[in-house]
Design a protein around this nucleic acid. Structure first.
Lengths: 203, 203, 203, 203
DNA sequence: AATGAATGAGCTTTCATTCAT
DNA sequence: GATGAATGAAAGCTCATTCAT
């Protein structure tokens, strides 16, 4: 499951190319060229263009999952803290790997049925995790929103959008952004309350 | 600037095709075929695949702009009401024309420089309008968020995401969704307050 | 047989285009465009691309023939003077209408059989005329070359080549060039003699 | 710089096709077909139709240059003998490779700027060589013409024209033609003299 | 006399892929 | 592990031509 150095190179170069042009407008020839090897070499490692696409998408999920998994491990059991940790991990993902997310969003449609199934299966864990966190918070009475499901979708969407404008040389550090978006997420989930107070309940 | 019947047909069919496969994976031959005319007929009306893409994107902006313009005309001067109206219009756009937005999000990268410039110019008005609304609300003291700019981006992102899951045969009517997302937007802009009360100030 | 004003326009524009790109690389659309009329207008006057090509070539022969015919009328019966006149007319043709000749040389191959036959027939007179002049000179004993036929071909070739380099703003006037090439032609036809003396016989 | 067997095949077939129809009227599909390989195979060896054209033209220059270079090496220092050798080489080129020259004459216009530059550069040596020979003869007082430059152009033109009519099954052998045209060239360069006497000086 | 709209055939080129080495 | 050579299919696009108006 771990990528060999050669595979990693193809995945990185391929992602850059797919993100720049889209799957259909990208040439596997160009990818091999930019990786500095022959086209046939690519075919030795991936059996076709579709296969490379899947590998890139899977690699994106791996990166994403390991980020929020690590964050949640350190977050304890409080739904508010878990929510904060999850949002921070999402912001980290979007700022550190902006291209990963852009691929996930736009290129799934180019997966053939079998690949799509495999990919969807792999994403299930992550999708479920945020659901659970919110459900827990609702059950615990700390997330008072009337629309928990819309909040979930919105939190994912607003963090995802960061990748479209974030500039590592800009004024905001990823850490600051993480705090900020965690706060905004809580504003959605706990309308009428000040999120800091929610956190205060924990202490 | 208005599209002839033939042009409209190509734009509609083309959009469907581009959204399904992406620009690069879509064949202009297929588009002509699905429009029921010869390939050359398409080329008589649009000089390029590129040209057709631009027309589709421009048409999307037209649709979007006319929606929020109409909504804002009826909304009066109160920033809160303007914000509500704007969000409602966005939700309407995303539910009624989900494909328009998906194109806007993913296919801009396929525009060549000149087209990108023209397109960007056309989007400027809409981009500026929401800024103004939020600035007004901040100046009036009703939008108390510390992060007005991130709220703006987030509101656009969360409404945009609706197009990815909205099902016209599902339980939510566009109108209900509009109200709901307007409320959520205000939760972001006025943290710690109950948005209904903000609206109450108006009356 | 004479061209209408519209036909003349198409012939002139078409020749320019065919000479610049060659027949196959020239678009009839471009020709109509450069003539400032619609494509269909061209089709009203010429039934197809082939037909236009033939008209252009025929027009070239007309121009050529009328030049040497006029020159020979004024030249009297002396073969030397006739030869001079003919060469001068050729030089005039190549300097005044350089494009005509370039078409004749290169685009005949694009004529379809029927057109080729018509065209060849029309050129026969001119081809025969120079033969007769040289035969007369040989019979009269003034053209002493052992290779009258090669001389004929060479004289045509060397005057034809003028079109490839002649510059109306250059130092040589067409008239000077005419005298010069007439002299050179006689150098070929009367080896070992000074052509001026041949001309002297006339006076 | 030397052509691989495959490249040579494409060059030969391509030349035949370009000469027959002209560049624009020739299909690269047909060329591949006549070469007995797939269309893509051609594109593996030449990146363009343009690129193939350039290769063909360059090959023509190679053939031409090696012919006159070999001839001049064996000709000694006498300008008259050099001139004879050069003309003989030109006649040999035109009789043995009539298509080469026809391409050179008519298809240069289809070269794009960069290719035209490269091609022109390559032809410079040959163009300069005949100039030098004539200049030497003029300086030595053996070429007495008043128009050395026009003679040069004419000699090139009249030998070039041979390709348009020469028939290998006709009465003239290339060698005879070579002698004949060398003599005619000297008739141009040494008006009023009998060229044999010039040659006699050598012995 | 002229035009706009349309068409089918063909063009050059690029693509993903394969295979012998 | 990797390459060069080749291929069939399809791409975007242009062409000469036609026809109703």
């Amino acid at each position: 499951m771990a990528l060999s150095p050669r595979q990693r190179m193809f995945v990185e170069v391929g992602r850059k190319e797919f993100v720049r042009n889209g799957y259909g407008s990208s040439s596997i020839r160009t990818i091999a060229q930019e990786a500095g090897v022959s086209l046939s070499a690519l075919y030795y490692h991936y059996k076709n263009k579709q296969d490379l696409l899947l590998a890139i998408l899977m690699d994106g999920v791996d990166t994403y999952d390991s980020l929020w998994e690590k964050a949640l491990e350190a977050a304890g059991d409080d739904p508010v803290e878990q929510l904060r940790a999850f949002v921070r991990a999402n912001v980290e993902f979007r700022t550190q790997f902006p291209e990963h997310g852009r691929m996930i969003a736009t290129e799934i449609r180019n997966l053939e049925p079998e690949g799509a199934r495999l990919y969807d299966e792999r994403r299930r864990v992550g999708r479920q995790r945020i659901r659970t966190i919110i459900d827990d918070g609702v059950a615990a009475g700390v997330f008072t929103t009337k629309y928990p499901d819309d909040c979930r979708k919105s939190i994912l969407a607003m963090t995802a959008a960061i990748a479209n404008w974030y500039d590592p040389n800009g004024p905001d550090t990823p850490a600051e952004l993480g705090e900020r978006y965690a706060e905004m997420a809580l504003n959605l989930l706990c309308p009428g309350e000040i999120p800091e107070s929610s956190a205060g309940k924990k202490g």
